[in-house]
Computed example of a mutant assay.
Amino acid sequence: MTTTILTLVGSLRGDSHNRQIAEAAAAVAPGDVSIVTYDDLTSLPFYNEDIDVPGAVPAAAEKFRAAVAEADAVLLVSPEYNGTIPAVLKNAIDWASRPYGESSISAKPAAVIGSSMSPYGAVRAHDDARRSLGVAGASVLEDAQLSVGTSMDRFAEIHPKDDAELVEQITAILNALSGAAKEPAAA
């Protein structure tokens, strides 16, 4: 059985190290894991309960919720902006968390990875993202963490998919997400 992991990248810059880390995840995914990167986060309007009503939900939000619902697990790949999660990822979590009681992310295995140019590797953003995912109802894998520091130096001359240590860490996280997605839901 193939596990589909929906990947959400918090950096909108086309050649960002976090986008490259998402590319690395797709390149090294085990044979029973399919990585689907959602590349349309910029189409999501800011979450607003006034437009999140039957018959008025924006098409972009419906499309995004369907992608989350169809996935077996979710992987956020996040930089750190001003000490926290990028707005585009927070907005995506907000849309996935609704409607209350029917959330597309509810009980879905989730993990957060990524990098920043600071030596701390976006740890604060990753902590905030895991907290937000958990409050939204996702089943956050607390042991599946990867925060890569000093990305400007580490990836100055190589793509993340060519970094053996990183590939090993990403593969372990993908396997953890796949394993969690295959576990029967808790009764």
Rank of each mutant, 00 (worst) to 15 (best):
169 Q>M: 13
52 D>L: 06
116 S>M: 04
175 N>G: 11
75 L>D: 02
1 M>W: 12
132 S>T: 13
8 L>Q: 03
153 D>F: 14
15 D>K: 08
22 A>T: 04
97 S>W: 00
185 A>V: 14
173 I>S: 05
78 S>W: 01
99 P>R: 12
171 T>F: 00
148 V>S: 06
113 I>L: 05
183 E>V: 11
165 E>Q: 15
41 L>D: 02
153 D>M: 14
18 N>A: 04
171 T>A: 01
14 G>D: 15
10 G>Y: 01
15 D>N: 09
49 E>F: 08
44 L>M: 11
50 D>I: 11
6 L>A: 12
119 P>S: 14
78 S>Y: 00
179 G>A: 07
176 A>L: 03
31 G>K: 10
24 A>K: 02
102 E>L: 12
67 A>V: 09
165 E>Y: 13
76 L>A: 02
13 R>L: 05
62 E>C: 09
120 Y>N: 10
154 R>S: 05
123 V>H: 07
91 N>G: 05
140 V>I: 07
148 V>N: 06
95 W>F: 02
74 V>Y: 09
62 E>L: 15
9 V>Q: 03
73 A>F: 01
12 L>T: 09
40 D>Y: 11
35 I>G: 02
65 R>M: 06
113 I>E: 01
101 G>W: 03
77 V>S: 03
45 P>W: 07
145 Q>R: 10
28 V>L: 05
174 L>C: 02
39 D>H: 12
166 L>N: 05
124 R>H: 12
113 I>T: 03
91 N>E: 07
183 E>I: 09
127 D>L: 11
151 S>K: 06
108 K>W: 10
178 S>F: 05
32 D>P: 04
113 I>C: 01
41 L>H: 02
132 S>M: 11
12 L>R: 04
166 L>A: 06
8 L>P: 02
181 A>R: 11
45 P>I: 07
171 T>H: 00
52 D>M: 07
104 S>C: 08
59 A>C: 06
4 T>L: 11
180 A>V: 06
185 A>E: 14
138 A>Y: 03
75 L>T: 04
150 T>Q: 13
54 P>F: 07
31 G>S: 13
109 P>D: 01
125 A>H: 02
23 E>A: 15
185 A>C: 09
35 I>N: 00
97 S>G: 03
175 N>S: 14
146 L>M: 06
107 A>I: 10
25 A>K: 09
85 I>C: 05
47 Y>K: 04
4 T>N: 15
179 G>D: 07
158 I>T: 15
123 V>L: 14
124 R>D: 03
179 G>F: 04
157 E>R: 09
60 A>N: 05
17 H>S: 12
9 V>F: 04
81 Y>S: 01
145 Q>N: 07
185 A>P: 13
136 A>R: 01
181 A>D: 11
29 A>C: 14
16 S>V: 11
172 A>C: 07
51 I>T: 11
61 A>S: 14
83 G>W: 14
145 Q>C: 06
181 A>I: 10
